[in-house]
């Protein structure tokens, strides 16, 4: 599903160049649930941004579902993101003046799905995360866990090939974190490929594989015995 070979990325900071990723080789098969771990500055967010087509890379190759992702213009990247990827953020990033339902509809709107169809579909995905009754509520009327579940429904509604979660439990208490991770595990069981960036060990243990980054290189990549969230 994801195939990365010899990936390099540096940031230009004035006169200095900051070499963030120093040759990453990384493969993800369909249906995997991978935790990417590392301390801050290890390059894990940069890697996720590159996988999410939110950032470019300098050297190496990156294929997503056998499509080479390289130097895309913004419009094309937007279309690929819409088709291939679903994002889940630490701070939920819901649009605060839209209801839960409208937030979930948004990716379908940009896909050009017909109005009736996208309303039904969005409601179905809200139902999947257990928030059908909250469809007409505004984000500020929802708890943190509910917001993150709306965000998950939004990421899922476009039926992406890969789900990218950046510290998705970072703003949640441990009980809610477990509930959200349970939802992630359920989605993964249905065959969805999921990448979770985290620095929490117990969250990582709920995945099937842990990739550890340090100073821009992968120092450990092992399959683990998955812990159930709940």
């Amino acid at each position: 599903m994801i195939s990365i070979k010899g990936l390099h990325k540096s940031y230009q900071m004035g006169a200095n160049s900051l070499h963030v990723l120093k040759g990453i080789d990384f493969e993800v098969e369909k249906g995997e649930l991978v935790a990417i771990m590392g301390s801050s500055g290890s390059g894990k967010s940069t890697l996720l941004n590159i996988i999410g087509m939110l950032d470019n890379y300098d050297k190496g190759s990156y294929k997503l579902d056998n499509v080479v992702i390289k130097n895309m213009d913004e419009t094309k990247a937007a279309n690929y993101r819409n088709k291939f990827l679903g994002f889940i953020f630490q701070s939920f990033n819901l649009i605060n003046y839209k209801t839960a339902h409208e937030n979930v509809i948004l990716p379908l709107y940009y896909q050009g799905v017909k109005r009736k169809e996208r309303e039904t579909k969005a409601l179905k995905y809200l139902d999947d995360v257990g928030l059908k009754n909250w469809a007409t509520h505004m984000p500020n009327e929802l708890s943190g866990g509910q917001k993150q579940r709306v965000a998950i429904a939004r990421a899922m509604v476009s039926e992406p090939k890969v789900l990218l979660a950046d510290e998705l439990t970072g703003a949640l208490d441990s009980k809610t974190s477990k509930e959200v991770m349970d939802l992630i595990q359920t989605i993964n069981k249905q065959g969805k490929t999921i990448l979770v960036v985290t620095h929490e060990e117990d969250i990582a243990q709920m995945c099937k594989r842990i990739v550890r980054l340090k100073d821009g290189v992968i120092v450990e990549d092992k399959k683990i015995k998955q812990k159930k969230a709940i």
């Binding site: 939110l54 937007a78 819409n82 819901l94 948004l106 990716p107 940009y110």
Partner: peptide, 15 residues
């Protein structure tokens, strides 16, 4: 920020 969210879910710059 709203534009950023819209872009993340697939909005093109021109839209």
């Amino acid at each position: 920020k709203e534009f950023g969210i819209r872009k993340a879910v697939g909005a093109t710059p021109s839209s």
